[in-house]
């Protein structure tokens, strides 16, 4: 993949991630977010965060499945950081428009409402990942440790999905789509590992048979 193209695609990715925020701010100023603007902002930022997080988690399995697409690894950090950015906007919406900056209200919510607790967990798990997203951190931690730490992204996504299910009324199925995608991604890792090891074994055996 030529560097220039990657740079162009990265610019597009930035625009793709920022344009919805610009759209949101524009409608916020115009007061045209519909009948319930508070809920509109919450849902928009919450869904955005979860989608970006799940897309960033899809990068590795897609690369393993389609080796020519290996270069998409260069978009993972960007997508992960935007997921965190959306999650921060979502959290700000809550702190401002739900809790009204009242610490008491927030503590009340976090301790009494498991759906808020799960959301907070999803956000908190993203913090160390965002902080160690620099190349310097990868070098400092060492690839292995860094990889292990960044598996927390899966835990964060699971907490996000749980937060979503616990947030909707019993009988509402709107989180089903993102849940199915996440389950597929979680299943993909072990399946792909198993598959690639099985593929390699017969080839090695064949080679051994020929005395190579």
């Amino acid at each position: 993949m030529p560097n220039r193209l990657v740079i162009a695609l990265k610019a597009l990715a930035h625009i793709g991630c920022l344009a919805p925020v610009a759209w949101l701010i524009w409608h916020l100023i115009q007061n045209s977010l519909g009948p319930d603007p508070t809920a509109a902002v919450t849902f928009f930022t919450g869904r955005g965060a979860l989608r970006l997080l799940v897309i960033s988690l899809a990068i590795t399995p897609v690369r393993r499945l389609i080796p020519p697409l290996s270069w998409i690894i260069r978009f993972r950090r960007l997508l992960g950081l935007y997921a965190f950015f959306y999650a921060c906007l979502h959290l700000l919406t809550y702190v401002w428009l739900y809790a009204g900056f009242s610490l008491d209200a927030m503590i009340d919510d976090i301790t009494k409402r498991r759906f808020i607790t799960a959301g907070l967990a999803a956000w908190a798990l993203m913090v160390p990942l965002a902080l160690t997203s620099t190349t310097w951190s990868i070098r400092k931690l060492g690839g292995k440790n860094w990889n292990r730490l960044h598996r927390l992204a899966y835990v964060s996504a699971i907490a996000g999905v749980v937060h979503y299910w616990w947030g909707v009324k019993p009988g509402v199925l709107s989180p089903i789509g993102i849940t199915v995608v996440l389950v597929l991604l979680l299943a993909a890792r072990p399946i792909l590992s198993w598959w690639s090891s099985h593929k390699r074994v017969p080839a090695q055996l064949a080679r051994a048979d020929k005395g190579l």
């Binding site: 977010l33 009948p35 319930d36 508070t38 902002v41 428009l97």
Partner: peptide
């Protein structure tokens, strides 16, 4: 949240 009110006055 008052439906139809602007976001900071809901």
């Amino acid at each position: 949240r008052v439906i139809g009110a602007s976001i900071f006055k809901q």
